Amino acid sequence: MTPVVVRTREELAEARSRVEGTLALVPTMGALHEGHLSLIRQAGRRAGTVAVSIFVNPLQFGPGEDFDRYPRTFAADLEACAAEGVDLVFAPGREIMYPGEPQVTIKSGPMGEVAEGAARPGHFDGMLTVVLKLLNLVRPDVAIFGEKDAQQLAMIRRMVADLNVPVEVVGGPTVREPDGLALSSRNRYLSAAERETALALSRALRAGADAAAAGPDAVTAAANAVLDKATAADPPLGLDYLVLVDPSTFTAVAGSHAGPAVLAVAGRVGATHLIDNVSLQFGKEH
Results as ranks from 00 to 15, higher is better:
Gly62Arg: 02
Arg69Lys: 10
Gly146Asn: 00
Pro63Glu: 14
Ala182Phe: 12
Met111Asp: 11
Ser108Val: 03
Gly255Tyr: 08
Glu101Val: 15
Gly283Gln: 07
Thr73Asn: 15
Ala76Asn: 14
Pro58Ala: 06
His286Leu: 13
Met97Lys: 08
Arg7Gln: 15
Val19Tyr: 07
Val114Gly: 06
Glu65Ser: 00
Leu135Ala: 01
Pro71Phe: 04
Arg18Gln: 12
Ala80Pro: 02
Gly215Tyr: 10
Ala225Met: 01
Ala119Tyr: 03
Val265Leu: 11
Arg203Pro: 07
Ser185Ala: 08
Gly48His: 12
Arg186Phe: 10
Ala230Lys: 07
Glu95Cys: 10
Asp240Asn: 07
Pro247Tyr: 07
Ile96His: 09
Ser38Ala: 15
Lys148Thr: 02
Ala15Gly: 13
Leu153Lys: 03
Met29Asp: 00
Ala24Thr: 09
Gly35Pro: 06
Gly270Tyr: 01
Gly180Gln: 07
Arg9Val: 08
Met97Pro: 07
Glu20Phe: 11
Gly109Ile: 09
Ala218Pro: 02
Val26Lys: 02
Leu135Cys: 02
Pro216Met: 08
Glu116Ala: 00
Gly35Phe: 04
Asn277Phe: 10
Met29Gln: 04
Asp68Pro: 05
Lys148Asn: 08
Ser256Gly: 13
Tyr189Asp: 02
Lys133Trp: 06
Asn57Phe: 06
Ala266Met: 06
Val160Gly: 04
Ala161Leu: 04
Ala218Met: 13
Ala225Thr: 08
Ala204Asp: 01
Arg46Gly: 03
Gly62Asn: 00
His123Glu: 05
Pro236Asp: 04
Tyr189Trp: 14
Glu285Val: 14
Ala24Asp: 11
Arg69Gln: 14
Ala154Thr: 05
Ser248Glu: 15
Pro71Glu: 04
Arg94Thr: 14
Thr2Gly: 07
Gly85Thr: 03
Phe124Thr: 01
Thr251His: 11
Leu12Ser: 00
Leu181Asn: 10
His36Leu: 04
Val6Glu: 02
Tyr98Asn: 09
Ala82Trp: 04
Val89His: 13
